[in-house]
Design a protein around this nucleic acid. Sequence first.
DNA 1: ATGACATATGAGATATGA
Length: 261
Amino acid sequence: MIIATWNINSIRARIDTAVAWVKEANPDVLCLQEIKCETNSFPSTVFEDLGYNVIVHGQKSYNGVAILSKLKPEDVRRGLPGDDAESPARYIEALFPAGSAMVRVASIYLPNGNPVGTEKYTYKLAWMDRLTLHARGLLALEEPLVLAGDYNVIPAALDAKFPENWVTDALFLPETRARYRIMQNLGLTDAVRAIMPDKPGIYSFWDYQAGAWQRNNGLRIDHLLLSPQAADRLKTARIDAHVRGWERPSDHVPVAIDIAE
DNA sequence: ATGACATATGAGATATGA
């Protein structure tokens, strides 16, 4: 079962690109972030025509998350516990039952947090604390669980081309990385690093500016965290970096795993 | 130090992003 995550940076501006990758990779579940549209404006029929179920948690202009899936979603949750009606749309989760191969998947768009020293950074840290609390509850279910998305976290120096440029940034500060590590210490496995523990130069984001893609000046900030029951089934993980070279690309690329059914 | 790019909104310029 292929499960992927992709910050699409506007689904309406990127619909052809999204369809092209879906046809190429044929994922069973695709978590999208930064769809940048309201729930009712999501181009659901395009994907339904390709055989996908579509669930969306959108908002006007910014943020917004969705999950495309071949299996019918159940137990859908929109928003993280603690969200209110005005909270940005950054979390959607569903259960995909397939006999013994059932899996619960969340699409996560974690706040960026810059600039540090403002309420944006404290909001990011608080959001990570809320996510951790929710993850604890999900882990207690002892199910295959995949928390996939744009974490806006550079977990280690290995995950940036120039880590020294990020030491005071919200993506790489010790307080940020500590919270990501706390999630791992709960028993969640970073799928890409489980498959490629020490491999340098594997990134999921390249800035649009200053020729970042051409110089491979990237960051690995899109992650799939797996419960033990999912990690036991992990077969492969990959980052589809070639998509960054397509016309009018998102600044992020899809990250995909294959778990045994 | 600044801007470089890109998108949404809405019709020019600003907010957001990482």
